[in-house]
Simulated scan of single mutants.
Amino acid sequence: MSKVTRATRVLEQARVAFAVHTYDYDPDADKVGLQAAEALGEEPQRVLKTLMTLVDSKPACVIVPSDREVSMKKLAAAFKGKSAEMMKPADAERITGYKVGGISPFGQMRPTRTVIEAEAMTHELVYINGGQRGLQVRLSPQDAVALLKAVVASVVA
Results as ranks from 00 to 15, higher is better:
residue 152 V to P: 03
residue 95 I to Y: 14
residue 110 R to A: 14
residue 150 A to W: 03
residue 28 D to K: 15
residue 132 Q to F: 07
residue 72 M to Y: 09
residue 147 L to R: 02
residue 61 C to D: 04
residue 32 V to R: 11
residue 141 P to R: 01
residue 142 Q to E: 12
residue 107 G to N: 08
residue 85 E to Y: 10
residue 82 K to Y: 09
residue 120 A to E: 03
residue 95 I to N: 11
residue 14 A to I: 10
residue 147 L to C: 03
residue 28 D to Y: 12
residue 9 R to W: 02
residue 36 A to D: 05
residue 41 G to N: 10
residue 38 E to W: 09
residue 94 R to I: 09
residue 152 V to K: 02
residue 31 K to S: 14
residue 114 T to E: 02
residue 17 A to D: 13
residue 67 D to M: 03
residue 14 A to F: 04
residue 96 T to P: 04
residue 138 R to K: 15
residue 155 V to I: 14
residue 89 P to R: 09
residue 66 S to T: 04
residue 76 A to T: 08
residue 75 L to G: 01
residue 137 V to N: 01
residue 121 M to L: 14
residue 92 A to S: 14
residue 67 D to E: 11
residue 82 K to L: 14
residue 23 Y to I: 08
residue 91 D to W: 07
residue 93 E to H: 06
residue 69 E to M: 11
residue 130 G to C: 05
residue 10 V to H: 04
residue 1 M to Q: 13
residue 4 V to N: 09
residue 142 Q to C: 02
residue 140 S to Q: 09
residue 42 E to L: 13
residue 19 A to P: 00
residue 58 K to I: 05
residue 47 V to P: 07
residue 56 D to S: 13
residue 127 Y to S: 05
residue 71 S to G: 08
residue 77 A to N: 12
residue 105 P to C: 10
residue 112 T to F: 00
residue 113 R to C: 03
residue 87 M to G: 07
residue 78 A to Y: 02
residue 29 A to N: 05
residue 80 K to F: 11
residue 112 T to M: 13
residue 78 A to F: 10
residue 89 P to V: 09
residue 76 A to P: 10
residue 52 M to Q: 11
residue 87 M to L: 11
residue 39 A to V: 06
residue 100 V to L: 13
residue 90 A to N: 12
residue 85 E to F: 07
residue 100 V to P: 08
residue 137 V to Q: 03
residue 85 E to D: 12
residue 48 L to Q: 09
residue 111 P to H: 09
residue 34 L to S: 00
residue 146 A to D: 12
residue 61 C to N: 05
residue 63 I to N: 04
residue 36 A to W: 04
residue 121 M to E: 01
residue 31 K to D: 15
residue 65 P to T: 03
residue 145 V to R: 11
residue 50 T to H: 02
residue 15 R to C: 08
residue 17 A to T: 13
residue 24 D to M: 06
residue 105 P to I: 09
residue 55 V to E: 05
residue 118 A to M: 11
residue 11 L to S: 08
residue 82 K to W: 11
residue 106 F to Y: 13
residue 78 A to M: 04
residue 18 F to R: 03
residue 147 L to T: 00
residue 76 A to N: 10
